[in-house]
Amino acid sequence: MSIITVRNLRKSFGAVEVLKDINAEVQEKEVICVIGPSGSGKSTFLRCLNLLEEVTGGEVVVNGHNITDPKQKININKVRQEVGMVFQHFNLFPHKTVMENITLGPIKIRATAKAEAEKLALVLLDKVGLREKANSYPGELSGGQKQRVAIARALAMNPKIMLFDEPTSALDPEMVGDVLEVMKQLAKEGMTMIVVTHEMGFAREVGDRVIFMDGGYIVEENEPNQLFGNPQHERTKSFLSKVL
């Protein structure tokens, strides 16, 4: 059964229509990579999946909740707890330590006991290889370390789905590998992931499916080998010829 269903999704910013008619399904444990040129709407698409952007039209069903249907009175804050998100610019809370960044959600939203939340945080920090940074502040970390902490923070809410919005685009090249490694591990463990990325290598290796977006539409989607090896549309071909 699909864990995310998107039907006829449209999104406009004022007069600018960014998403024109998006239809997509994501199965549980699938890793979807979304690629495409800047301004193609891929980040907006991702942000519609947890309603960080209000949609203009169409339907988004996440984990059984139709979050775009006002009649269903869905508590979006509850749904967001099931959907972790990692941002291009990390957005760690600079006034809190790494440990506090990770435990803030569980303690304040789930009312988890502090000791228990910290135990979980250490497990997550081990996972991303940053246990020794627990008491550091974000300002003391490198970009790659920040992004790994951001992943741990999202995982602390024990989400069913993880959204990644260009997680490595703001990183120095030598930091990218560490972050992708953590994401690969996560994929291996069966996390449902949607990754907006410019890392074609990652999309090829880790993605179960790759979606190519352009001009507010999904132009083409396929298994990575097919999409990268034998693109069907002219637009896909010309994009790939430029980035590969």
Partner: peptide, 29 residues
């Protein structure tokens, strides 16, 4: 930065909680 609110909201904080735990403490500094 707007990203601070977005990060808090994406975890599941309400708007008020995001203001209280994330935005205001930084703003006051």
């Amino acid at each position: 930065d707007k990203g601070q609110t977005e990060a808090a909201r994406s975890i599941g904080f309400t708007g008020t909680q995001a203001m209280r735990y994330v935005v205001l403490p930084q703003a006051f500094r």
